[in-house]
Amino acid sequence: MDVFMKGLSKAKEGVVAAAEKTKQGVAEAAGKTKEGVLYVGSKTKEGVVHGVATVAEKTKEQVTNVGGAVVTGVTAVAQKTVEGAGSIAAATGFVKKDQLGKNEEGAPQEGILEDMPVDPDNEAYEMPSEEGYQDYEPEA
């Protein structure tokens, strides 16, 4: 019985440690998101679009440190934060509304985080759909 109880105690310690790591990862992701939003706020009209992409990228980098179902929630929060940063930029006159959601080359930025393969159960990952990809044929 002692062996059984000791095993359960060790398992509990492992769960607590994993929860603490997840909590730490979420806190880091939130900190990076805040950094990115402050970065966007300090940019001029020309830099705002690039700044919004930076927020998304920093958040995406930190999301990889967070495991399990938390990833889905962090990704949703990050996307809403990026959308909010863009709205703030438009409201303050840093950028025109028609410039939001495009990178410096004018290509749409939507789907940055949505296409990231995420499995809350950590069982399997699927690649994003290939609808947006084109076949590449090298020139002879």
Rank of each mutant, 00 (worst) to 15 (best):
residue 126 E to G: 05
residue 86 G to M: 02
residue 105 E to S: 09
residue 20 E to A: 08
residue 86 G to S: 13
residue 129 S to G: 13
residue 49 V to P: 03
residue 71 V to I: 00
residue 74 V to W: 09
residue 10 K to Q: 06
residue 84 G to F: 05
residue 97 K to V: 14
residue 22 T to L: 13
residue 52 V to S: 05
residue 86 G to H: 13
residue 118 V to R: 04
residue 62 Q to V: 12
residue 133 Y to K: 04
residue 38 L to F: 11
residue 78 A to Q: 02
residue 20 E to T: 07
residue 113 L to V: 03
residue 57 E to D: 06
residue 65 N to C: 12
residue 14 G to R: 14
residue 140 A to P: 15
residue 30 A to R: 05
residue 139 E to I: 13
residue 91 A to E: 13
residue 138 P to A: 08
residue 82 V to G: 05
residue 36 G to Q: 04
residue 19 A to W: 12
residue 107 A to P: 06
residue 28 E to L: 09
residue 138 P to L: 14
residue 71 V to T: 00
residue 134 Q to S: 12
residue 102 K to M: 15
residue 50 H to S: 11
residue 117 P to T: 11
residue 48 V to T: 03
residue 42 S to Y: 07
residue 84 G to I: 14
residue 58 K to I: 13
residue 20 E to M: 06
residue 46 E to A: 08
residue 93 G to W: 13
residue 47 G to Q: 00
residue 33 T to Y: 04
residue 108 P to L: 12
residue 99 Q to E: 11
residue 30 A to W: 05
residue 5 M to I: 00
residue 3 V to Q: 03
residue 77 V to S: 02
residue 25 G to F: 14
residue 90 A to V: 15
residue 116 M to Y: 09
residue 36 G to N: 15
residue 118 V to H: 12
residue 66 V to C: 07
residue 91 A to I: 15
residue 9 S to G: 03
residue 131 E to I: 13
residue 88 I to P: 03
residue 67 G to S: 12
residue 107 A to L: 10
residue 33 T to V: 13
residue 104 E to R: 11
residue 83 E to M: 12
residue 18 A to K: 04
residue 135 D to G: 04
residue 106 G to E: 09
residue 125 Y to Q: 07
residue 109 Q to S: 11
residue 50 H to R: 14
residue 34 K to T: 05
residue 126 E to W: 09
residue 57 E to Q: 12
residue 130 E to Y: 09
residue 76 A to F: 02
residue 19 A to E: 00
residue 57 E to Y: 01
residue 22 T to M: 14
residue 66 V to I: 12
residue 125 Y to G: 09
residue 115 D to A: 10
residue 34 K to V: 11
residue 117 P to Y: 04
residue 47 G to D: 04
residue 52 V to R: 03
residue 5 M to W: 02
residue 70 V to P: 02
residue 50 H to L: 14
residue 75 T to Y: 14
residue 75 T to S: 04
residue 76 A to P: 03
residue 123 E to Y: 05
residue 52 V to D: 01
residue 5 M to N: 04
residue 105 E to F: 08
residue 57 E to T: 08
residue 67 G to I: 10
residue 27 A to Q: 10
residue 107 A to S: 03
residue 133 Y to W: 06
residue 88 I to A: 07
residue 122 N to S: 10
residue 106 G to I: 05
residue 87 S to C: 05
residue 116 M to L: 02
residue 6 K to T: 03
residue 95 V to G: 04
residue 120 P to N: 05
residue 10 K to A: 08
residue 62 Q to M: 09
residue 113 L to K: 14
residue 27 A to I: 12
residue 138 P to N: 13
residue 94 F to K: 00
residue 16 V to A: 07
residue 74 V to G: 04
residue 86 G to Y: 05
residue 25 G to Y: 14
residue 105 E to A: 09
residue 132 G to P: 07
residue 91 A to F: 15
residue 11 A to F: 09
residue 3 V to A: 04
residue 128 P to R: 10
residue 105 E to G: 05
residue 50 H to K: 06
residue 107 A to V: 05
residue 49 V to C: 08
residue 55 V to E: 00
residue 22 T to S: 09
residue 21 K to C: 09
residue 3 V to K: 03
residue 95 V to Y: 08
residue 136 Y to W: 10
residue 129 S to L: 15
residue 58 K to F: 02
residue 139 E to R: 05
residue 125 Y to N: 11
residue 99 Q to D: 09
residue 80 K to D: 01
residue 134 Q to N: 04
residue 53 A to H: 01
residue 107 A to G: 05
residue 66 V to Y: 09
residue 31 G to S: 14
residue 52 V to P: 01
residue 137 E to D: 07
residue 10 K to C: 03
residue 11 A to T: 07
residue 96 K to A: 15
residue 132 G to E: 09
residue 124 A to W: 06
residue 23 K to I: 03
residue 28 E to C: 03
residue 66 V to D: 02
residue 2 D to T: 04
residue 15 V to Y: 14
residue 107 A to M: 03
residue 113 L to T: 06
residue 130 E to F: 04
residue 136 Y to R: 13
residue 81 T to N: 01
residue 120 P to T: 04
residue 23 K to W: 14
residue 12 K to L: 13
residue 97 K to R: 05
